[in-house]
Design a binder for these strands. Sequence first.
DNA 1: CGAGGTTTTGAGGCGAGTCAAGGCGTGTGG
DNA 2: CCACACGCCTTGACTCGCCTCAAAACCTCG
Lengths: 233, 233
Amino acid sequence: MLFDATTKDTFLNIFEGAPERSLKAGDMLVHAGAEAESVYNIVEGTLMVTRIGNDGRRQVMSFLFPDNFIGLTTDRYFFAVQAVTDARVVSRPRAVLESRLEEDAEAGKAFLNMVYRVLENSMDLVYSIGQRTAVERVAVFLLYLRNRQKVVLNVDDDAPVLSRINLPMSRQDIADFLGLKKETVSRSFTQLDERGHISRPDNSHAVIDDLAGLRKLAGIQDFSSPLRPGQSR
Amino acid sequence: MLFDATTKDTFLNIFEGAPERSLKAGDMLVHAGAEAESVYNIVEGTLMVTRIGNDGRRQVMSFLFPDNFIGLTTDRYFFAVQAVTDARVVSRPRAVLESRLEEDAEAGKAFLNMVYRVLENSMDLVYSIGQRTAVERVAVFLLYLRNRQKVVLNVDDDAPVLSRINLPMSRQDIADFLGLKKETVSRSFTQLDERGHISRPDNSHAVIDDLAGLRKLAGIQDFSSPLRPGQSR
DNA sequence: CGAGGTTTTGAGGCGAGTCAAGGCGTGTGG
DNA sequence: CCACACGCCTTGACTCGCCTCAAAACCTCG
């Protein structure tokens, strides 16, 4: 597949001086089924990985942010990657990545670690969609965005900036990510607001007023903690 | 995380002559949160990867079959691995795997390809749980088991053996895998039966009578085909 | 043959989906 | 700069699919 990194990994130096490409919101960077000739790294903006069924049902697999890597697949892309906001990416031929990973064992290790993190994210999503209620899923989603922002800004977990959550994607996008309908996402935001967990200055922002409460709802100690879900039955 | 391979990959030769361990149905091979000292390969039997929330909700992430690899994580296991049936696995210290991947670029490539396949499987599951109805999920599940069996037996897709599906796991396990309740899984089997897609000689077997119909229900041409879901909207 | 567990089936409830209307924000053209 | 139009978001009323709770059927194993 294609997907996201999260930290500055050693292998990312293949993108130094790489050609840049600008995308408008809505533009497709990668089409499902296309040959995976290039790999990308995000410089600015938000993108999303989507998979669309024969009958039109769409699942958003992941949202991607600056410094996230795109290109986790063997020879063909199985999923599409689309710009959510205007964005800039840098690209390199896949072969450049591959020879880098072959030559430098350290880079190979870092790359593998990134793939593991992507796999973790995917499993987090499986757990969310499979086990949590609508409100819980939206709560987890906000914590997920908060954590991404924390990584992008490279700040402490208690940094005040993190309480203001940017929501560049539409309600429909969120719904397709969480396995809900857009109306349900909207109602869930309203509920979190009414319960005092969040407030909503405008449609593309949410402010976390009660982090502990959100985390409790999500059944999570800390989104980036090693034992996220806990292990007792 | 930890997880599964699917074919005989070059890196698997680290398990040649490795010590074997026997498991009884229900035994835990790996505990969530434990240090990942060893990696495993399945010789015989069925296992499953699970994640359990604080409140007891359980998500089965994957079922594992012979020649599937267990050990996709950095330093700690985030998930548990449990035997579904009596099983035998071989194990090696993680360090052995790591040095193998470092020394042999070919093995590293094969390993990475396996991780990609695992990631694909995980995304397939996200799509199923997020977008499909109960009956569709069970239909896809049967095709998924059929495909696994095809790989294990190394036979053609139209091999008659494949029509008889072995279901070593309980209805509860299936439910926790598909994000449903066990009663719903049961009702979905009944529906597939009534519609003439399958028959059920006993509780641990299903026979596919109408492969084309199942595939249509699942919205899939072929489970192992490159463009599984299709790409039009 | 009986006990315990699992699966199936049934009846009823509830959470999320559907369909539809209204509100709000944004951007464009007058 | 305002007015309007359009798209997106929210809210409401109603529906439906899956869940819950419960009982009966079945299977397994002593």
